[in-house]
Amino acid sequence: MGIEIIMTVIMGFTLLGAVIAVEIKNLLSAVIALGTVGMGVSIAFLFLMAPDLAIVQIAVEALLLIFLIRATLKPDIRATHAHIHPVGLGLVVLLCLGLIVFGFFAFQPLEFGKPVMAQRSEIPSSHYLREGLRETGAANIVTAVILDYRGYDTLGEATVIFTAVIGALTVLRAKAHRKKGGPK
């Protein structure tokens, strides 16, 4: 069985999960459906030979589900109107249909299974594959790239995560905006 068939099946499943997550009324069910999307993407990573990504995706997915369930588990959530104003909704649906048609034709010439690395030999990916073990001593080339060749990138990632966590803690702080002499 070819990789295209496997990927089509997995992505059909993922697409189904995404549509359910978007359209279902109950928020908790939507969150669970989003979880199936994440797990489908993780399985796709496994078939595309990216085991590190599959592991990270599963770990992150579990964490994200905990956050989302914490946000939606309220006993008194009232049902909201699902959509925006009808005219705007029509425009959005037209835009999305147009985008799908555009994507269908725009991605046709892009051939699956032939990365740029295989067509040109002087790009960084080829260098990493050929010299990665000798230059960094890491057998896993992905690890060699994120922790050695592009270590500053990972430092920036840590900065972004730190900022996001500080922002979330600031937003969720129980005692907000109480200064000395300010309004009680």
């Binding site: 030979m49 590190d52 690395m117 992905v142 060699a144 990972t154």
Partner: peptide
């Protein structure tokens, strides 16, 4: 397979 997109996407997932 190409290791460079995998390394960048690993960063992207966590962000």
């Amino acid at each position: 397979v190409d290791p460079l997109p995998q390394a960048l996407v690993l960063t992207s997932i966590v962000i």
